[in-house]
């Protein structure tokens, strides 16, 4: 049992984290809620306006409608693609191949670099009119593609960048795959199951907790994507890549409409929260935990 002195010591040890959480997370979180009900231009005192910002958002703001639809499209495109790709690569890297350590590292590297400004700039040059991708296409006899000038192509480049950052999800999948009990595979082999059956009926059900974890994390991160559209496309063309975090940024730091930006941020938070709740609710039907009594 911890004595008084030890309790004090324990509190002292965790206090930097607690203080950081309160000051840098809890306070801004609550402050933004308050600011979402105000007219605040960053340089003068906030003025209480009640629900005006939310009313404007839902009734008069076409840019918000566009940005929201673009964001939802981006999330619903990137999350499944990224998870599927990460799982596929993890399955391949789970085989005992020569130099497997090197390959695992090589596939993980993009996720370390992926969110950085430098990679976004690199992406911009790769897909530019005279960039690497068009050089390869024309070299193979195809026509060059206008990646950034066409709204659909521009979104594709951002989706591709996000999927390219599959490393962290892949590593988690890999750890899950390695934890699957080998005796189950042996039993399936004896019963004559082929590789697809083994994957579909043994591997996937046993790693559903990890699929669920990655689904939540990737969904939240996709909703918060900023660097890619800001650096590569600046939200264009025609706002086709104008994700909500960019809109929040522009409203807050270009228009100095911090109250309105806070309202958008809270709408984004509610959307993420609802989707997370739905995911947790649905997980009862498809996620299996060790020791689970369901059959």
């Amino acid at each position: 049992m911890m004595g008084g002195d030890n309790r004090f010591l324990g509190m002292a040890y965790v206090s930097p984290y607690i203080i950081g959480l309160l000051v840098f997370t809890a306070f801004p979180f609550l402050a933004s809620l308050y600011l979402s009900f105000t007219d605040y231009d960053l340089l003068s005192t906030p003025k209480w306006v009640g629900l005006d910002n939310y009313e404007r958002l839902f009734t008069r703001d076409r840019t918000f409608d566009k940005s929201l639809s673009v964001t939802l499209f981006y999330v619903f495109m990137t999350v499944p693609l990224k998870l599927a790709f990460a799982l596929l690569v993890a399955v391949v890297l789970n085989y005992k191949l020569k130099a497997i350590g090197f390959f695992r590292t090589a596939y993980y590297v993009p996720s370390i670099l992926g969110g950085s400004i430098a990679i976004a700039v690199l992406w911009r040059y790769i897909f530019a009119e005279a960039g690497l991708v068009n050089m390869m296409l024309t070299g193979l006899g195809f026509e060059a593609v206008n990646w950034f000038g066409d709204p659909q192509n521009a979104m594709f480049t951002l989706v591709l960048l996000r999927c390219w950052q599959f490393g962290s999800a892949m590593v988690i999948f890999l750890a899950a795959l390695q934890s699957v009990d080998k005796s189950l595979y042996e039993a399936a082999a004896i019963d004559g199951a082929n590789k697809w059956h083994v994957f579909r009926y043994i591997t996937v059900p046993l790693i559903t907790p990890v699929i669920f974890f990655n689904l939540i994390m990737q969904t939240v991160q996709a909703f918060q994507e900023f660097n890619g559209p800001y650096i590569i496309t600046n939200g264009g063309p025609l706002k086709s890549t104008y994700l909500l975090p960019m809109y929040i940024y522009d409203k807050a730091f270009k228009s100095f409409d911090m109250g309105y930006a806070s309202a958008i941020a809270w709408i984004l938070f509610v959307i993420i929260m609802v989707l997370t709740v739905v995911a947790f609710w649905s997980s009862k039907k498809w996620v299996y935990y060790a020791g689970d009594k369901r059959s």
């Binding site: 911009r124 530019a128 009119e129 005279a130 950034f148 590569i232 496309t233 264009g236 063309p237």
Partner: peptide
């Protein structure tokens, strides 16, 4: 045209090839 200029990516004039 705007789409053709945009093809160079989000770069200012002085970085445009």
């Amino acid at each position: 045209s705007w789409p053709d200029m945009a093809a160079a990516g989000n770069v200012p004039l002085f970085e445009n090839a």
